[in-house]
Simulated assay, not measured.
Amino acid sequence: MATVYPSDHAALAAEPFALQEYYASCHANGSLALLFLPISRHSQNILHSPTHAASISIWSDRPAASRPRVSLIGNVTVFPDLSLTPDLARIQACYLDHHPDARWWLPGPREPHVAYWARFDPHSVYFVGGFGDKHYIGYVPLDMYQAAGRQGTGVAGRVLFDQQDHIP
């Protein structure tokens, strides 16, 4: 995930910050479920962004220059009230299927950290299919990305890897 430090940060105002972040593809439209911990640097940057902007990279199981990858650019919706989290039971089960070790940080009355559920909604998708002379590199229409998730094959971005020769 990549976010940007807020403009009022003492030392790193408007600087980018990137670090691996847990996510799970739990939405049919390609949005991603996030475990949102306000103590994390990404969460703090997102909360201080007027649009709650972030970017998430998804790649093949073995990243390499010749392998496909996708960058999702979008915004994050945080659900601070657990009772108002859409599809709470399904999201929690899906997330734990992807990250069983996260059970210790799930939202609810737990200590020592506060946690919420959040949803990352991409608005732009940039795809790198591998080397440019052999594979597609460029933006993917959002509706194509969102439709890929409805095919039931897991992470919507990874579906694109199988369809890379068919991207306009």
Rank of each mutant, 00 (worst) to 15 (best):
S55L: 01
N45H: 03
Y145P: 10
H166R: 14
T77N: 05
S124H: 11
V159F: 01
L19S: 11
V78M: 00
Y5N: 06
D8E: 04
P63I: 06
L96V: 04
L12P: 01
M144G: 02
S57F: 07
L37R: 13
S25C: 03
H9E: 05
N45R: 02
D133Y: 04
I56F: 14
I167S: 09
G132F: 10
H135P: 02
R158T: 09
P122G: 06
L72P: 13
N75R: 12
A28H: 06
D81H: 13
A13E: 03
D162E: 15
K134F: 07
D165F: 08
V76I: 12
A11F: 05
D87R: 13
L12G: 00
M1E: 02
V125N: 05
Q20S: 12
L32A: 03
A147H: 10
A147K: 11
P16Y: 08
L142V: 06
Y136D: 15
L160C: 13
P168I: 10
S7I: 09
S55G: 06
S31I: 01
A118V: 01
M144D: 09
H9R: 03
G149Y: 08
D121N: 13
I73F: 03
L96S: 05
L35C: 01
P80I: 15
Y95F: 15
D162R: 15
H48D: 09
F120D: 06
G157W: 09
F36P: 04
T77M: 07
S43R: 07
A24Q: 09
A65F: 12
T153P: 00
Q151G: 10
D143P: 11
H113F: 14
G138E: 14
M144T: 15
V155I: 06
D97V: 02
P63D: 10
L32S: 05
S7N: 04
D97I: 00
D87T: 03
F161T: 01
Y139W: 12
P86S: 08
I58N: 11
H98N: 03
R110F: 11
L37A: 08
L106V: 11
R69H: 13
V125W: 05
S31L: 01
A53D: 03
P112L: 00
A64W: 08
S49E: 01
R103V: 13
E15H: 08
L35A: 04
G154F: 02
P86R: 09
C94T: 02
S66Q: 14
F79C: 08
S57C: 15
R150T: 15
S40Y: 07
R67E: 12
L82A: 13
G30T: 01
V140Q: 13
L12I: 00
S43Q: 04
R62C: 05
A53Y: 04
K134Q: 14
Y126H: 14
D101K: 13
P109I: 00
A14E: 10
P107D: 06
D61F: 02
I91F: 04
H42N: 12
P112A: 10
R103C: 00
P109V: 01
F131V: 07
